[in-house]
Design a protein around this nucleic acid. Structure first.
Ligand SMILES: [Mn+2]
Ligand SMILES: [Mn+2]
Ligand SMILES: [Zn+2]
Ligand SMILES: [Zn+2]
Lengths: 143, 143
DNA sequence: GATGTTTATGAAAATCACTTTCATTACCAT
DNA sequence: ATGGTAATGAAAGTGATTTTCATAAACATC
């Protein structure tokens, strides 16, 4: 899986005429090894712990590249920080977010997706993307 | 309807031991008269046109109060501005957002809502709120 | 109606999370 | 090895809030 992502990125780099750099490789390594839904700051801190010379701006720019290359996606849970999650070929999911501890659970529901398309169609919209997040207490925090 | 909202707010003011002020009344008036989904800046500009002495900070703080009082809700469509929409007793809706012209259409879909509850339950979550937005081109922008 | 206490207001400063700038490095095709 | 680009990091800039603080306005109580 990591191999696939790395290939995806190096192909992207080549296709765009960009350069392969130590920093980009390092950041990709950390991104792939990380939990999902990392904020720029969080990833930057993890990277910096091992590579104090890599700057915030580079992490920021590299995450944008990952998104452009199709291996990451920007998400916004309303806490004021942009997060990046992993994208897997042909996969789509939405989120359950715990309002107490921040736990994020992913889910897929084809029936809902289909209904969303119908809603859009009934209003004459041509849907490009959508966002669905359910906020509440996770099993642990309910107790 | 406006009467109900004003009552709701004055009750809130009283209950919280806050003060009734000219500014709050004015801002509420403009909020109730406005289209839905206004950003702070937009409402501030409308208010300022007639009341040049009311400051941005007051509009900002007053909108927060409206939300706390239950007559407005903060929404975030990813354009970098916080917006406030009207809340009507016992009503819930989600949004279709045109990515080209910004048009916002509201819709309700009980079937989706029910499925969302089921998803949450199957993951042991106790849902408090949710967010569902469908982004794409509105009928006009499709042409 | 005047007064005292408390909350609200407005202008300006401070935050926050990016986003861009720019001098300096690092890539990489000769 | 070298020259031409692209990338990097530190710092400055942005834009949308969010907070601070001196002053003003409410609203109970004289
Ligand atoms: Mn989905
Ligand atoms: Mn709405
Ligand atoms: Zn939790
Ligand atoms: Zn449109």
């Amino acid at each position: 899986m990591k191999r696939v992502k790395k290939k995806l990125f190096s192909d992207f780099i080549a296709r765009k005429g960009l350069k392969s750099t130590r920093q980009r490789d390092t950041i990709l390594e950390f991104f792939l090894a990380s939990d999902r839904h990392m904020s720029i700051e969080e990833l930057y801190l993890k990277v910096r712990a091992k590579h104090p010379n890599i700057g915030y701006a580079t992490v920021y720019r590299t995450l944008k590249l990952f998104a452009e290359a199709g291996l990451a996606r920007e998400i916004q849970f309303g806490d004021g920080q942009t997060r990046y999650e992993h994208v897997n070929e042909g996969e789509h999911h939405d989120h359950l977010v715990c309002t107490r501890c921040g736990t994020i659970v992913e889910f897929e529901n084809p029936v809902i997706e289909k209904l969303q398309d119908e809603v859009a169609k009934s209003h004459g919209f041509l849907i490009e993307t959508h966002k669905m997040e359910l906020y509440g207490l996770c099993p642990k925090c309910r107790k």
